[in-house]
């Protein structure tokens, strides 16, 4: 199982891992529309990890957490839950955790039925190393809700990063990206500029420009990813501040 997550471009989730669909689109489309289901599926596939993490923090064992995640998404997609009025609807992040809590409250009653999920496999667990990704993020001192927020923020970052890598690869800069991606999180030191310049056969100044551009593009993609999870684009800055807080926390 290990390794598949490290090369996301080759995984079966390719293309659906990015929040290329908009939460606002889901809300605006009629409930019986096939478009809505497709859009919502895209979003759910992109944000399975915070749900899984929340469930694990609540004490569910990995197989149970997988089943519940699966069942929750089916509940969302097939029920009329989405059409009920909900003040948290403006943000996909808030909406999803609210819906999950609602789902879990009813779960004890419908446990067996929901657990099987009608047999449909919405998330392809076989291609994911869910537990490994959970552990990579997990902070044992966090309560389930705080863990959900941190995981959500990191998932946003991760989705944007996958998109950046795909873009770079498409532009024929996979090698550059491989050498330089580390500098998305830290500024190179003297020796590192020299090493990178040597490895890529260019000058220090050019390395500096590439890193600069990579950082800028990544920031843009993060903003797009955040915007995709909101009903009102004007809320982007607030949501970004929230995520910044979650990451620092």
């Amino acid at each position: 199982m290990s390794g598949s997550a490290a090369t996301p471009t080759s995984g079966p989730q390719e293309g659906t891992a990015f929040a290329s669909t908009q939460w606002s689109l889901v809300l605006e489309t009629r409930s019986d529309s096939a478009n809505r289901r497709t859009a919502l599926e895209g979003l759910c596939r992109a944000y399975w990890l915070p749900i899984y993490g929340y469930l694990r923090r609540r004490g569910h064992a990995p197989p149970d957490a997988e089943d519940l995640t699966q069942g929750f998404f089916l509940y969302l997609l097939e029920g009329d839950f989405l059409d009920r009025p909900d003040p948290a609807k403006g943000r996909f992040r808030g909406y999803l955790i609210g819906a999950l809590k609602h789902f879990l409250a009813g779960e004890s009653r419908h446990a067996s039925a929901q657990k099987r999920g009608g047999g449909a496999q919405f998330i392809d667990w076989a291609s994911l190393d869910a537990e490994r990704e959970f552990l990579a993020q997990d902070q044992s001192q966090q309560d389930p809700s705080a863990a959900y927020e941190t995981s959500w923020a990191l998932t946003v970052m991760s989705n944007a990063l996958r998109r950046l890598e795909a873009e770079q690869a498409a532009a024929g800069r996979a090698r550059q990206f491989g050498v330089l991606k580390g500098y998305l999180s830290t500024t190179p030191t003297r020796g590192e500029y020299d090493d990178a310049a040597l490895a890529l056969g260019t000058t220090r100044a050019t390395v500096a420009v590439w890193i600069f551009r990579l950082n800028r593009r990544y920031a843009e993609l993060v903003r797009l990813e955040v915007a995709a999870s909101l009903q009102d684009p004007a809320e982007v800055k607030n949501e970004m501040r929230h995520l910044l807080q979650a990451l620092r926390g």
Binding site: A136, L154, S158, E165, G182, L184, S185, T186
Partner: peptide
């Protein structure tokens, strides 16, 4: 090495820390 926490990265190579990269990206935009 920077935030002294897990790098949180599914790209666990190349020294990338997703948390630090995220903070940086959000800060650039904000």
């Amino acid at each position: 090495p920077r935030c002294r926490r897990s790098t949180h990265s599914p790209f666990g190579v190349g020294g990338l820390c997703l948390r630090c990269a995220g903070v940086r990206a959000l800060a650039i935009d904000l």
